[in-house]
């Protein structure tokens, strides 16, 4: 499949803050591609540059063969954008909103009417199309928001956090719509979310983005496979390099590393440094064990520690999924 999107070292700077630090990736025609990352990771800024809302500071991208820096008008006709916000006019009806956005994309007359009816069908809002959007539920508003992005039948649809604040029923409806658009109409979709389960369900491939950088990019299957059989976090009283090497060599264990220690809190006012130093500075050390087979690895790790009279202070097993991949890659949760 040819690439509909090729991003080449895209950079965006706001003053001194580097929001996007040179991301590169490509999306094939007909693919559903996930862009994963916590809030503030740079997902929306990346999408804003690709849709012409923001001008890149450096780097470029090609959409449908057109350069976003030199052929932006052609690019905009290919793109459809469903912003994270409910970008609608609440006092107008869904139909009036869609008519307006259709006109903005140059649709007129019969074509416009047909497209409005089509997108209303896609989001199942034909019956209530003449009601003011402000009277809709949150989920219905989200659906109109999606319909507005589809009005000109784009080849590449950017869905930026489309399920924020949506009830489960509407969320399922949105998933179905996205899958239908991709399977039945061959629409390429870039789906950003910080809900890993959505990306796992909808996307073929995903890029994990954190602090403006892509830290992993692969198929969902391969990303999850990075964790092998999962991750085990083992609390032990003391850790040294020898212990970590020996644990890494255990059967069913891929890797054992010491997790970053929490930083000691500052001394309380009136408390001397000596007093502070008399207390434990950090919590108990935690070893992160990446397992090939989590059940076998747990047994081996527990036996290994008991043979050395090291008592377990904590034990946590992370099932292999995108959430644990993200935690493994960044040391933080997606929703932090």
């Amino acid at each position: 499949m040819p690439a509909i999107l090729e991003v080449d070292n895209l950079i965006k700077k706001f003053g001194d803050h580097l929001a996007v630090k040179g991301v590169s990736f490509s999306v094939e025609e007909g693919e559903v591609f996930g862009l994963l990352g916590p809030n503030g990771a740079g997902k929306t800024t990346t999408i804003s540059m690709l849709t012409g809302v923001l001008e890149p500071t450096d780097g470029t991208a090609h959409i449908g063969g057109y350069d976003i820096r030199t052929d932006l008008d052609a690019v905009k006709k290919i793109n459809g954008l469903v912003p994270q916000d409910l970008a609608l006019y609440p006092t107008l009806s869904a139909r009036a909103n869609l008519n307006f956005f259709g006109q903005i994309y140059g649709l007129r007359g019969k074509d416009l009417k047909e497209r409005v009816e089509d997108v209303l069908r896609i989001v199942s809002l034909t019956d209530r199309a003449n009601e003011a959007v402000e009277k809709y539920s949150g989920g219905m508003k989200r659906r109109v928001n999606i319909a507005a992005g589809l009005i000109h039948n784009p080849r590449l649809l950017f869905l930026d956090e489309p399920t924020v604040g949506v009830d489960p029923q509407s969320r399922n409806h949105i998933f179905e719509s996205v899958l239908r658009l991709n399977r039945e109409r061959g629409m390429s979709i870039i789906y950003t979310s910080h809900y890993m389960e959505e990306v796992e369900l909808l996307c073929n491939r995903a890029a994990v983005i954190d602090q403006g950088e892509i830290i992993a990019l692969d198929t969902i299957k391969n990303l999850i496979a990075m964790l092998g059989g999962g991750v085990i976090k083992v609390g032990v009283p003391k850790v040294d390099d020898t212990l970590l090497t020996q644990m890494s060599a255990l059967p069913a264990v891929k890797e054992a590393t010491l997790m970053p220690q929490p930083i000691a809190p500052p001394p309380v006012a009136g408390e001397s440094i000596e007093q502070k130093e008399g207390k434990p500075l950090t919590a108990t050390p935690v070893v992160k064990v990446v397992a090939e087979n989590s059940q076998e690895a747990i047994i081996n790790v527990i036996n290994f520690l008991s043979q050395r009279d090291l008592q377990l202070t904590s034990l946590k097993i992370l099932e292999p999924n995108l959430e644990s991949v993200f935690l493994h890659l960044t040391g933080k949760k997606l929703r932090e």
């Binding site: 012409g52 006709k77 912003p83 409910l86 970008a87 609608l88 006019y89």
Partner: peptide
């Protein structure tokens, strides 16, 4: 504020 300005900027105009 509602984000429609962003949508208009993304449109070919």
């Amino acid at each position: 504020e509602v984000g429609s300005f962003r949508r208009l900027l993304a449109a070919p105009m």
